[in-house]
């Protein structure tokens, strides 16, 4: 148990990581390799320096991925905050202290580099144990979801589908293969509800959309210009009728009717048996209309065992900052976060 060796990732470990992560990424050698490059190499905010590996002898037995996320923070400008992801412990080494050992090693490194926080958008069973180990939670929060019948055949090209007219707004809603500059431009104009929100600029949209193990489905609503957009995500390693949900990772619109038309169109047209979306930062009028759009709400019950799969943000101070006057000292307050445009799946 004590013979684990924890190291930072180095290029010589690449083949071992690609093979090891098949348990989680399931993209095969080529797909996993491309995913590693995308997440830890092409990420505009952080390189692979904090990817943490655990070894027993020469065997890779654990990994913590750490990628960069980029936030607008009132009073601080733009701030990179590292996110934990892609955690895998080899089956024979589960049920023990390895995860905690890797995490402790990682946090020590972050502290030494004066990185103040580590984030994790967790919807996984590790959450309670992390909270017991000094992490702080924002959430969990509700999700909306819809189950649909699926045709059993693969959908054709997303952007080959015909545009539709939104029944409420009259806007033309068009499927697109990629994001367009009007999307980040609209996101930038939004009123924010919190003082910490993810940077949604062209660079972010471009990077996210380049995920080699994901498929993104874009809708744009136009009525004398762009009046709204929606982006949904589905893993590329599942079939259209496979078990993983399709997640609406963001939907923005200039008015509620356009927003409802976009959601309704997505629920009707994106692939997957289940369509899901976060509800945390929806305006009340939009949340109240989810039922009429075919989505049902799942709210937190307060019981850990029941809420374990609901989304939450857990974060841990590395100790690099201390005290109320320190930079970013308010991050543990739920009200400072505006998580529109963020979804755990949106970064997978």
């Amino acid at each position: 148990m004590s013979d684990y060796r924890i190291t930072a990732y180095a290029p010589r470990h690449r083949n071992a990581v690609v093979e090891f992560q098949q348990m989680l990424w399931q993209g095969g050698a080529r797909g996993n390799s491309a995913y590693f490059d995308w997440k830890f190499g092409d990420n505009p905010y952080l390189d692979d320096r904090y990817v943490t590996l655990a070894w027993q002898g020469s065997e890779l037995v654990g990994m913590l991925g750490v990628f960069g996320s980029y936030w607008e923070v009132d009073g601080h400008g733009r701030v990179m905050l590292p996110c934990l992801a892609d955690t895998v412990v080899a089956p024979a080494h589960r049920g023990g202290p390895l995860f905690g050992r890797m995490l402790g090693w990682l946090v020590d490194r972050l502290r030494a580099d004066e990185v103040p926080w580590l984030l994790d958008f967790g919807d996984q069973p590790a959450g309670p144990a992390m909270l017991m180990s000094g992490w702080t939670a924002v959430g969990p929060w509700p999700v909306a979801s819809a189950e649909r019948e699926v045709s059993g055949r693969e959908q054709g090209a997303w952007d080959a589908q015909e545009a539709v007219r939104g029944p409420r707004s009259g806007a033309t809603i068009t499927p697109l293969a990629n994001s367009v500059p009007e999307m980040p431009a609209m996101a930038a104009k939004l009123d924010t509800r919190g003082s910490v929100r993810v940077v949604r600029d062209e660079e972010y949209f471009r990077w996210r959309n380049a995920n080699p193990l994901a498929r993104y489905f874009h809708l744009v609503a136009e009525s004398q210009g762009t009046v709204g957009y929606l982006i949904a995500h589905r893993t590329a390693v599942d079939t259209d009728d496979g078990p993983t949900p399709t997640t609406i990772v963001e939907c923005e619109a200039l008015d509620d009717d356009v927003w409802r038309d976009l959601i309704e169109t997505a629920v009707a047209t994106v692939p997957g048996k289940v369509v899901t979306m976060w509800v945390r930062d929806l305006a009340p009028a939009r949340e109240q209309s989810l039922g009429s759009l075919g989505l049902s709400l799942t709210r937190p019950s307060g019981r850990l065992s029941q809420d374990i799969h609901l989304p939450k943000l857990v974060m841990r101070s590395t100790g690099a900052v201390d005290g109320d006057s320190a930079p970013l000292s308010t991050l543990t307050s739920p009200e400072v976060w505006d998580l529109r445009g963020v979804s755990g799946r949106g970064w997978r």
Binding site: G95, F99, P128, A129, L131, M132, S133, R303, L304, S305
Partner: peptide, 30 residues
């Protein structure tokens, strides 16, 4: 090393079923 993060969730479920209690986030401490 007998119990890991997933084991904690299983333990909470078992305690809830066995004793009819509810384990919430406020209850969490090592």
């Amino acid at each position: 090393g007998l119990i890991d993060s997933v084991g904690f969730i299983r333990m909470f479920v078992v305690l809830e079923e066995e004793f009819g209690i509810e384990v919430t986030a406020r209850d969490l401490s090592l």
